[in-house]
């Protein structure tokens, strides 16, 4: 099995009201050194395969077809090394 982490973030320049509001709240809590907050969605996906090249192709398609809307999102994904998973 391959486990991948997919990150979906708003493109640079697209309004991020969730990040902006979180920034405001953090500033109000006294964290005045915080100057920007960006909201990012993360998905962890398990794939029933050992074929990493194929998995990457599928992950690319998953991002385009569901996990991200390419109009407003950039996305990236990485395969999580087995050691990192075992250390959990």
């Amino acid at each position: 099995m391959i486990t991948a982490r997919v990150e979906v973030r708003l493109k640079h320049g697209v309004a991020d009201p969730e990040g902006d509001n979180t920034l405001k709240a953090l500033n109000l809590l006294g964290f005045e050194q915080v100057s920007a907050v960006r909201s990012i969605q993360t998905f962890e996906v398990d794939l029933k395969t050992e074929d990493e090249a194929r998995a990457r192709e599928d992950l690319e398609a998953m991002c385009r077809r569901l996990l991200a809307n390419p109009v407003i999102h950039d996305y990236s994904f990485e395969v999580i090394p087995r050691e990192a998973l075992e250390a959990r």
Binding site: V14, A15, P17, E18, D20, N21, R64, R65, N69, P70, V71, I72
Partner: peptide
């Protein structure tokens, strides 16, 4: 819109052509 049926500029698409994004007010 997510389905690619709207706005459908130049026909239906597999990936969205637009987004109904979070309101400015959040």
């Amino acid at each position: 819109v997510e389905l690619g049926f709207l706005p459908g500029l130049g026909g239906e698409t597999d990936v969205p052509q637009a987004s109904l994004a979070t309101n400015d007010s959040a």
